[in-house]
């Protein structure tokens, strides 16, 4: 019986496994191999195997700068998303019109990603909405809002905030708000009740939101490309530049590997935290099983 069920499960998951193998695993293996090959003169790769792509990267200060910028921009954007997403999700989950607000959160997805970035360019540009308005108020020189890390962070937050709000919303929506009352009854101020009871109860949702924002943010390409300029370039732009401008395939493959490493590390940290929690739960559960209920 059991093996038959296993076989059915295998059959059902086959299309997915096949898809991931052909379009994800195999390409990644190709990239790994490319990263250890020599760059061809007109692009492409050649034998022999070498560590040159990696070693060149390690001694290149510009590369380190971009790597570091990618990480901190993603981290700051994620933190801002948590900061904005928590109150927003709390508000939506406790609102009578939650469906309307949820729709409002999702509506931006109806507009193309690139179009929305262009929208920000119109707002932030030297002759954009903000600067025109400020000049109307008497500002002489227009502010340099575009082509800064700040612009990149702003647009990343704008793009990925819904991915933070939705998991937070679903966690808060399941939260029993009588626990807040219980905490306040026991002497907690409203803010203390939220920190000591609500936040620990929805940490799963926070973790999911952080992963959903941080990893796509790390991999940003179009946003820094369009609003980041030279000061706002991220790993994604570096990979693209190595591939299209420098025509150095091994180098761009090696950078991709570094990117994979960072996002995997982030995911591992997340899984580790989750695992420690569930493991503790199981342990206490086992001691409980041994005792009799009264």
């Amino acid at each position: 019986m059991k093996s038959k069920r296993d076989f059915t499960g295998f059959l059902v998951s086959m299309p997915g496994i096949l898809w991931l193998t052909v379009f994800f695993l195999i390409p990644y293996i190709i990239i790994i191999i490319y990263s250890f090959l020599t760059s061809g003169i007109y692009g492409g790769v050649e034998l022999p195997f070498t560590l040159e792509a990696y070693s060149k990267m390690l001694i290149n200060a510009g590369y380190w700068q971009i790597l570091w910028r990618t990480v901190w921009i993603s981290m700051i954007a994620t933190l801002i998303c948590v900061g904005l997403g928590l109150p927003a999700a709390y508000f939506i989950a406790t609102s009578k019109h939650r469906n309307m607000f949820l729709t409002l959160v999702i509506i931006p997805f109806w507009t193309n990603f690139l179009v929305r970035i262009f929208g920000w360019m119109v707002i932030l540009g030297r002759n954009g909405v903000i600067n025109s308005f400020l000049q109307l108020l008497g500002l002489k020189e227009p502010l340099n809002l575009m082509y800064t890390p700040g612009a990149v962070i702003l647009v990343i937050v704008y793009m990925y905030l819904p991915y933070m709000i939705l998991p937070l919303y679903s966690a808060i929506e399941k939260f029993d708000f009588r626990l807040i009352e219980a905490a306040m009854d026991l002497g907690a101020k409203r803010t203390q009740a939220i920190w000591k009871v609500l936040i620990p109860s929805i940490r799963g949702g926070i973790g999911a939101g952080v992963i959903l924002v941080f990893i796509p943010a790390l991999g940003s390409y179009a946003i820094p490309d369009l609003v980041g300029g030279a000061d706002g370039a991220m790993l994604g732009n570096l990979i693209a530049r190595q591939l299209t401008v420098a025509r150095n395939w091994p180098s761009s493959s090696a950078i991709s590997m570094i990117f994979l490493l960072i996002s995997t590390l982030g995911l591992l940290v997340y899984l580790r935290i989750n695992k420690v929690q569930s493991k503790r739960r199981v342990q206490v559960g086992e001691t409980y099983m041994k005792e009799e209920e009264d």
């Binding site: 626990l179 026991l186 109860s201």
Partner: peptide, 15 residues
């Protein structure tokens, strides 16, 4: 939180 009464809730409301 400033009242000297405490409540035992119907659903217990344990954290």
């Amino acid at each position: 939180n400033e009242r000297e009464g405490n409540t035992v809730f119907q659903n217990y409301a344990l954290f």
